[in-house]
Design a protein around this nucleic acid. Sequence first.
DNA 1: GTTGCCATGTAAGGTGTTACATGATTTA
DNA 2: TAAATCATGTAACACCTTACATGGCAAC
Lengths: 188, 188
Amino acid sequence: MSLQHAILGFLSWKPLTGYELKKMFADSVTVYWSGNNNQIYRTLLDIHKKGFVTKEVQHQDDAPSRKIYTITEAGLEELRSWVLSPPEVPQLKHTFLIQLSWADQLSDDELDHLISSYEDEVHVHLLMLRKQAEVKTMSPERTQRERYLWDMIMQNWIVMYETELQWVRQLRHGLGDTTPERKHNDGH
Amino acid sequence: MSLQHAILGFLSWKPLTGYELKKMFADSVTVYWSGNNNQIYRTLLDIHKKGFVTKEVQHQDDAPSRKIYTITEAGLEELRSWVLSPPEVPQLKHTFLIQLSWADQLSDDELDHLISSYEDEVHVHLLMLRKQAEVKTMSPERTQRERYLWDMIMQNWIVMYETELQWVRQLRHGLGDTTPERKHNDGH
DNA sequence: GTTGCCATGTAAGGTGTTACATGATTTA
DNA sequence: TAAATCATGTAACACCTTACATGGCAAC
């Protein structure tokens, strides 16, 4: 699991409440995590029990009390050793490709429509990423090296979806080319 | 969930047992699904209950009996309508990028080592994919269009990891460039 | 004689999602 | 007057992974 470590990462910048963490995940494109509370609150309890954070309760009369979590030395150590742990290749859950695997049962028009709507999805997603990249939301940017890392991380997401868009366009055009041939060869 | 539909997809080619399905998932790079039995056997029970498959038990004296699953009309219909359902952009779980997000605490050497070992991982993975692409394992390839689709699906995986490899190389070289500058700017 | 293949499955636990619940304050 | 924001959390369920269990047969 690395939600734990992403939370420790944010807390290494400054102390935060669960609610604030939830927002940071929701706002961040690169440190993506569905931004759902259940997991965040449970993970906070967990890392508190492990001693990676301390909890300070701030009572408020007219609202539920804020619980501010601060990272400890042990937490910083845990974060550091996780960052150094052997990196793994990204795992992509590419359901569209599985849909495509059995798409030969569709008519030419149905298939073209399916691919086109996927192309639109990817395109919209890419535009959203590019807009986010301009805004340059958070990240402390304390050193030039850190700024460079965060830029490259954002860049990674963008080039991935650019590549996907190129691929799907090639797919669609290639299909347009093979379809008449197919009719020639398979027709009779 | 789409494991259900991937199973229906394989069964649309021919009747199979759970064990055979497990192997097909394990062998397939493109229709990736961890190939773990628990899920497959439970999903088979599930789709049988839903009427998407029929089950034929073949008794064997000296081994556990084979249970051969055959797709039904309802199953084919379900598969078809799933294939037509609105496609979604791929979701990537890119833990390395989250590691990188907090990697500025590392020394130049540690960071360089982290990135290099990631580069190696990606490279090895890419070579594996290219080798698989040559073998061209399964897929029925009944029409030219289907062959084209399967080729493009394999191609998608390859270009994704090629893009990743290019990106990580650029990252490493860019770091080499900024590091001396950084020392100049931040040093004093 | 140990490993691997065939073939079924269970147990236990981790991870992730959606929806629900409260209740005051601010904004449209 | 309806909604969104702040701030906490619970309940129920879906999905996914690892390891365990059985037991004959073939290959090395």
